[in-house]
Design a protein around this nucleic acid. Structure first.
Lengths: 133, 133
DNA sequence: CAATCTATGTAATAACATAACACGACCATT
DNA sequence: AATGGTCGTGTTATGTTATTACATAGATTG
């Protein structure tokens, strides 16, 4: 899944997400793109679907929101196994990380149980160091 | 957080969830409980909120659904650290498991980054062994 | 040119979740 | 018994997230 040329809508959505410090819901993205001709949620969801496929964007399940992948451009996260997220409840900052040991344990469990994992979600909700005070 | 006596609504919701082979959305639960006098989503959500607190029910973030905790009664999951779920896309079966090594790695990452995790979500989506064929 | 594929636009609706307000049961204290 | 507090509950309305269905336009290819 190499990152192909993006369509206009995909580029707009990715741009908005990339500039944001925080995850955004589809509807927030929609609002930001009204001036660019976006009228309906579907325009956002369709762009997001592709961007997720390309690995340029991640979906945060526990927030029903989306973030741009923090691994800037070219050859993104595919190489790193599962992506984990630490989400600060206070400031909204999201840290993306990878851990091979965790991947191994999950793979081990799946193998032992005969479970074939297509997609793995790991999300920590809490407070980042800056917000702990 | 010991498991206290449940109220009528909490008991009804837990009962419905416990009998189900699959995770249920709040609205599906609501439908099942119409005959018991449930009329509005809030009745379900309020019961779920408490059951989640008690650790008798888990929320599956990637499904916007709920399951009864598989550790039957008394002294549930609190003792096991983070709970992980493997969810079969085909049959809906959910397997709940715990892994101390994963807990350790996540704790290690958090400690190193100064992140205080309040709640951790681990969900595998895929196919269970019975559905792989 | 037709056939097809992909991206797009629009409207309507479905699915998930919460806010706001009211009422009654229970319990403690006065 | 009266007061006040907390908690569970019921109801209506509303807010938020996501999808279905249908129509159009452009590019590509046989």
């Amino acid at each position: 899944m190499n990152t192909p040329n993006l369509t206009k809508n995909q580029a707009l959505v990715l741009d908005v997400l990339s500039r944001s410090e925080q995850p955004m819901s589809a509807y927030t993205i929609l609002d930001k793109l009204r001036d660019n001709g976006f009228r309906a949620p579907l325009q956002v969801y369709r762009a997001l679907e592709k961007l997720l496929d390309f690995g340029l964007v991640h979906r945060l399940e526990s927030l029903n929101s989306f973030v741009a992948c923090s691994h800037k451009h070219e050859s993104c996260c595919q190489h790193h196994g599962t992506v984990a997220f630490a989400i600060c409840e206070k400031c909204g900052q999201v840290s993306e990380f990878h851990d091979h040991a965790i991947d191994d344990r999950l793979r081990g469990w799946a193998q032992q149980k005969g479970f074939k994992a297509e997609k793995t979600t790991i999300e920590l909700r809490g407070l980042c160091s800056a917000c702990m005070g």
